[in-house]
Write a protein that binds this DNA or RNA. Structure first.
Lengths: 341, 341
DNA sequence: CAGTTTTTGAGGTACGTAAATCAGAAATTC
DNA sequence: GAATTTCTGATTTACGTACCTCAAAAACTG
């Protein structure tokens, strides 16, 4: 049988109360006694029954998700997934809350993080913006002892506990490799549409893409990066313009979430030879475009998996349990029209 | 606050004991009383606290995994993942057990399933073989009220509760699409190496592959399928032979688990132009071959995800809870050398 | 050594459910 | 209407942990 607190007490020759004091870090235990108890815990291989503990505490995990109020399908989908988790959350003793912030706005994110410190939830997940003040705010949240998970876009050197999202450099490399192979390896011109170079995920994708192109497909020329701020109208205008100015474009890599604008532009502009298009995030728009051949490949991160992973990780951190690294690795899905789910 | 059994009792005007009788299907409750209690449950939106219930029952979930004692990397990896889950299982009130059976042996699988009926675990997961007697055995397990999950290979029309594995037709289609695009769309000859056409997943992969080639890449000619029985030596010999007989081969699709032999053959035979190679399952061998350029793409199913998914599904079934379909869909991973994890 | 502080023990209640017992009420049968 | 059977209520214990109180023991202080 699994050892319980009673077994620890008996084995260490102390009372239940003392075991409880040691287990929960309460004061009033001599150093030697504490060590005796800890020895018994280690010897018997005791692990706290988290379910029973939560029952006794009648604990509910309060988690806060800070999400940018972006008008793109991916962020909307991410919000939907969090709301889906909220619907299931009461079953798991969780109270998940969403806080919306303006997109690409470091000051607003900092304010939201500072509010979190006051509310002291059991954990926070947020889509990071990579600036020094955000980093400092994260440091304050961490100092308050609140577990932190970055979602979709990371903040590597900051005090976050875990990053839930894809390896964006690998994603960019994959896009570069597919682009090079699909284009057949000759000379060609490629355009890149990003959201903002302020967020790390977009920067990293570009970096991976450019690296592979440089190393493996030197015949490809990459045009200056377009920053569409993940805004449909702006992205459409930028793509229309670049296609007009560079009719020789053979490939487009859309590494942000401005796909609605991109697709509209592609459908408006008539090209002599259709460009090879690789985009990120499978949404209703990119799915349709993939199905009808406007887009050739979509790299995707599964928002549902990310949200569930973030919650699992936050819960584990709140309980002081280890996370299963392999389970929490978010994979890069590659969709062609032939493997659409 | 979440309603408890006490709230139900009060609201229905009955005692706790009666609520318990209704909730757990115990006899001795009049039809009208039962309906009154069920009405209160529905009205208050009561959901049983599974953690508390399991604590009270001091329940442990006994799950049995029936795995073929194959010596290929994938099945070995699958077994490792189950053993990994066993290591964590006591934390979650689970007792997972592995039963090994000889590979491709329907009679042995039937015997294992019938043993399961006697042991009455809380759930079974097994790698299906598609024969009538296995189907009948599954029916007997289901009749005993034991939740059943098929793993990796399905048994669609049988009484299983859930299938944990990839969509093999979509996997084959994806391989066909990548092959067609990587080869540039012109005329070319492609070889296919399978394990056995008697195995359902291999048949489905071939079907998907051939369909896409026929529809989208009519310039590709597919040579007669090689059956390597997932045996390294046989696969190597077959590949050597086919390359010798058809020096014009531009692509090879390996849809089974005979990759070790394939890779050895590719390294021995010197070709004027290297063939495009697409294989299944990321193992130490295929990973190395992908890294050094012998293989161009690997389609993978994540064994760890499959095992964890199977356990989650079995647990949900045992608790009478719904499964989150999106969470349990096993995805087809596509690996190029640029996105190796 | 008396007085003070710190440490420890013993015991209880609670969390939400399961499962059991036993007595009493209600419905059914003869 | 008495005897029997079928329901129902009241109460208790248990699961493993958290958290509280009170008293007693042990360790320090001066």
């Amino acid at each position: 049988m699994k050892p319980t607190v009673h077994d620890i007490a008996r084995s260490a020759g102390v009372s239940l109360a003392t075991v409880d004091r040691v287990l929960n870090g309460r004061p009033g235990v001599r150093r030697v006694t504490r060590q005796r108890v800890e020895g018994a815990i280690a010897e018997l291989g005791y692990v706290r029954d988290v379910a029973a503990a939560n029952l006794a505490k009648s604990r509910t995990y309060a988690f806060t998700f800070i999400l940018p109020a972006n008008d793109n399908s991916f962020m909307i989908g991410l919000g939907d997934e969090v709301r889906g988790a909220i619907a299931r959350s009461s079953l798991e003793r969780m109270a998940v809350r969403i806080v919306n912030v303006p997109p690409f706005d470091p000051a607003a994110l900092v304010a939201a993080l500072d509010t979190v410190v006051l509310e002291r939830p059991a954990g926070v997940a947020f889509v990071a913006i990579d600036t020094p003040d955000v980093r400092a705010a994260v440091q304050r949240v961490a100092a308050a002892g609140i577990p932190i998970v970055t979602l979709v876009s990371d903040l590597p050197e900051a005090a976050r506990d875990h990053y839930v999202g894809i390896d964006n450099i690998a994603a960019g490399r994959t896009a570069g490799s597919l682009m090079g192979r699909f284009l057949g390896g000759g000379d060609a011109t490629v355009a890149v549409l990003s959201g903002s170079m302020l967020v790390r995920d977009h920067r990293e994708r570009l970096e991976g893409f450019a690296t592979v192109v440089r190393e493996q497909f030197p015949g490809l020329a990459i045009l200056p990066v377009l920053e569409g701020r993940d805004d449909p109208a702006l992205a459409e205008a930028l793509v229309m313009q670049v296609l007009e100015d560079n009719p020789q474009i053979a490939g487009i890599y859309s590494l942000g979430a401005g796909n609605r604008g991109l697709i509209q532009a592609l459908r408006k502009v008539s090209m002599t030879r259709r460009a090879m298009v690789i985009a990120h995030e499978l949404t209703a728009y990119t799915r349709a475009a993939l199905a009808d051949g406007t887009i050739d490949a979509v790299l995707n991160q599964d928002a549902g998996h990310e949200v569930r992973s973030a919650i699992r990780v936050l819960k584990a951190k709140a309980d002081g349990l280890p996370v299963i690294a392999a389970q929490e690795r978010i994979r890069i899905d590659i969709f062609l029209k032939d493997n659409l789910p």
